[in-house]
Design a protein around this nucleic acid. Structure first.
Lengths: 113, 113
DNA sequence: CTGAATCCGAATAGATACTG
DNA sequence: CAGTATCTATTCGGATTCAG
């Protein structure tokens, strides 16, 4: 698993790059914007994302303290994921990224193969 | 090398994630903000970035049409890298990311090991 | 000065099977 | 329902060497 060491915390970009590096990280964070979501609900939102990959990504993001994991001790088990304050602060950046991504898509039909 | 296929261009996040995924991408783009930079000048700016890794990253970013490669046919060779319009549009997002990264660093001394 | 080619180790993503 | 454990294939970054 990716770890942030103290050397990384010298550079804002290294920090951001590591935190957002997972293939699904951006989308997971985006889908938690509206509030807590359960594991399987999250899983169903993404096409091509597998059970175990989601588990790993969530643990990763949790270790970065970007998302919070709330366990309800009941049967059947229930676990909800939500954004931490740190995670919520990513909203405006995510919105800009989305905008840029859309712009990119509009302008770059020629890039895809 | 990472490629954007037409399926990717369906989702702004996938697009953004792929384009910015390289370990040095964010920093390279950031350092091109002020204008064109030569290969070796760029190389010297980063500690731990090797010659061949930089070559690959630049080709990658060029393929995404985020940076432009200008070759001056002279001896010794001179090549300058600069941001394309698409790349320039990343500025505000990068600035927000920097801000977030700094915020993260301030709040999360406890995360590093 | 700039960059291509190759090779290697580490890190991912995903498939599958098993558990409380 | 929400995991864990293990295995595999692929990718990625970096070192090294060679070339225009």
């Amino acid at each position: 698993m990716i770890q942030l060491n103290s050397a990384d915390l010298t550079c804002p970009f290294t920090t951001a790059q590591k935190v957002l590096s997972g293939k699904w990280s951006l989308m997971i964070i985006f889908h938690l914007k509206e509030g807590p979501v359960r594991f399987n609900d999250l899983l169903r939102k993404f096409d091509g994302l597998t059970h175990s990959s989601l588990t790993k990504q969530l643990k990763q993001l949790e270790s970065f303290q970007v998302i919070h994991r709330e366990v309800y001790h009941q049967v059947p088990p229930k676990v909800e994921y939500s954004l931490t304050d740190l995670g919520k602060k990513l909203h405006p950046t995510l919105d800009m990224l989305t905008e840029w991504g859309s712009e990119y898509i509009k302008n770059c039909k020629g890039i895809a193969r």
